[in-house]
Design a binder for these strands. Structure first.
Lengths: 186, 186
DNA sequence: AAGTACGTACAGAAAAAACTGTACAGAGTA
DNA sequence: TACTCTGTACAGTTTTTTCTGTACGTACTT
């Protein structure tokens, strides 16, 4: 893992790698919950255990994959704020390391991904609500249609209520209030 | 939408469908956050606005897709507890409707999917921790390796701490305590 | 300014996933 | 028991996604 100096034997290296590998495997697999590829998950795991920030070439070598793939993988992880670009004088290459604060990672994920979804959904629901109201107010709307509209309206109202709640939950994640509600230490 | 009686005109039907369609579109798209396909998301949206529980054939007709796809789609949604099987005497076909309580849907999702991930990760981390400890205790472990092990150990410790917190957050979701912390009504 | 090294855009290949049609097991009906 | 109908397993096809190699723009070095 970038430690080619003979500071530890091949055997020692292998043993440590084996231990790491199993964790990487599991963590990588479960990262599909964050909507990332299995291989991007692996990349994350690799970076997690890296002894120091890695370059794209390092990653490519370790993962036995093309640098192009590393580039896109890293970008995905950067977007999710799971990985940070690191500056180090002397190296012209870009260096990356994982964000080790997983609390932060988790809350950031919500703040970005879920917020986006909530907002677009809320917008769609509100728009629909308006249209329904406009339709319902038209004098030539039959009684049956009125019933259908009432039903749709109620469904949308409930959904809106839920999204507003979710929005507040995301607020709590974003500003860290969640850690008052559910403390880091029990 | 299963309303082939002439209780409303073609035109009325179309107008309502257009409004619904836009919501379905958006909701379906954002359901990728739950790890479901776009088309499964659409299916969910369809069921959301359905005036009554639907059969697989109904869905296939509306979605213009094979019954097989509906079957797998519904099963996915059932697994996520986003859809419920409904019993209705007289009909030999299975009937499905969405779970309209979206608060429930959200918390259930966490309770099942995220819990699974947390548990498998915690297990892997603990196993790794044990192996590291065993290795570190061996007398022939060099100083350099000891340092590497110490670093890995610390990383794992932090990760464990995070997962334990997440586990408690999931607890709060599961038993509804989250609604005390972040109330449904502000 | 010329040369070198880095990251990524892009097009094509490989792999994975979604979707379909057929076939069939099992439950309900007569 | 024989018959009908429903949901799904499975194999094959289509579509989508992932991955790779090449080519190139940019930035740094000399």
């Amino acid at each position: 893992m970038g430690l080619d100096q003979n500071q530890w034997s091949e055997e020692e290296h292998d043993v440590v790698q084996r231990i790491r590998k199993r964790v990487i495997e599991v963590v990588g697999r479960n990262m599909e919950l964050y909507g990332v590829t299995l291989s991007t998950g692996h990349l994350y795991g690799l970076l997690f255990f890296a002894d120091k920030p890695m370059t794209l070439d390092d990653m490519g070598r370790e993962m036995q994959m093309s640098k192009t793939s590393m580039s896109t993988g890293v970008r995905t992880l950067l977007d999710l704020k799971m990985v940070n670009k690191v500056w180090e004088k002397g190296s012209r290459k870009d260096l990356y390391e994982v964000e080790y604060d997983w609390y932060q990672t988790f809350t950031d994920y919500f703040a970005t991904q879920w917020r986006r979804a909530v907002e677009s959904n809320l917008q769609a629901l509100r728009r629909a609500m308006k249209e329904i109201d406009r339709l319902a107010e038209q004098p030539d709307t039959g009684g049956f249609v009125a019933g259908v509209l009432r039903a749709d309206r109620e469904k949308i109202r409930q959904a809106e209520s839920y999204y507003k709640w979710l929005d507040r939950l995301i607020d709590a994640m974003e500003d860290g209030e969640i850690f008052d509600l559910v403390p880091r230490e029990p």
